[in-house]
Design a protein around this nucleic acid. Structure first.
Length: 204
DNA sequence: ACATTAATGTGGT
DNA sequence: ACCACATTAATGT
């Protein structure tokens, strides 16, 4: 399966249409719930997460994005406010482009416009998979939903050598499970030969 | 180098 | 699922 890098636009093109490089430190908040969506963001370095908090204050991670991926773009097509936060997990560099410039860029580049459709579809696909797996009561099944997706996304097809670069806490916050449950379910899966754990690293 | 915080494991309720 | 606690890894000053 081919990896879809979503949404990976050539930086030259981004700068041409008014994109600007921005640097952030780990834990910096790029935008938060309630902010109006004003920019297109594409990551050139580092990792960011999109999250929200429930009534009890528990964190739910919506997604974790890495290099050459964009975030927050669905909001550019709506006159709405963000319903989640974007926070840096590592020091990060992004290219930020004002919404109107972004839309103009799409108008002038039908090819990019098509790619944008593919990108949004990819996001919907991810949401659907996560929704399905999260609706399961069985923690192992929830984990499988997430892991299968991550593997297919990164995908060099190889048995149990895909390194899941998420902490157990992050996995818990992505699946709505407790850390302890994640740890135990992972061990169970290891016992059943469904994945390997090499000194805390998860190989799936 | 040391203190603090975050992540990982385990056991019990 | 939740809580308490021990061990280990990562980060800050």
């Amino acid at each position: 399966m081919k990896t879809i890098s979503c949404m990976n636009i050539d930086p030259q093109t981004l700068y041409k249409f008014g994109g600007q490089g921005k640097k952030y430190n780990a834990k910096d908040i790029i935008y938060q719930e309630g902010d109006p969506a004003l920019y297109y963001y594409q990551i050139t370095k580092g990792k960011i997460k999109q999250n929200s908090y429930n009534e009890e204050g528990k964190e739910f991670i919506q997604n974790i994005l890495g290099e050459n991926q964009s975030f927050g773009d669905p909001m550019l097509f709506l006159e709405k406010y963000y319903i989640m936060n974007a926070i840096c997990l590592t020091p990060a560099e992004v290219i930020r482009m004002p919404k109107n410039n972004f839309l103009e860029m799409l108008e002038k580049n039908p090819k990019l416009s098509l790619e944008m459709n593919a990108c949004l579809s990819q996001r919907l696909y991810f949401k659907a998979i996560m929704l399905q797996s999260i609706s399961s009561q069985n923690p192992v099944l929830r984990l499988k939903g997430l892991l299968n997706y991550l593997k297919s996304y990164n995908a060099d097809e190889c048995e149990q050598c895909f390194h899941v670069e998420l902490t157990r806490q992050q996995i818990a916050n992505l699946t709505g499970l407790r850390v302890e449950t994640v740890i135990r379910a992972l061990k169970k899966m290891e016992k059943q030969g469904e994945l390997k754990i090499d000194n805390r690293k998860i190989l799936y």
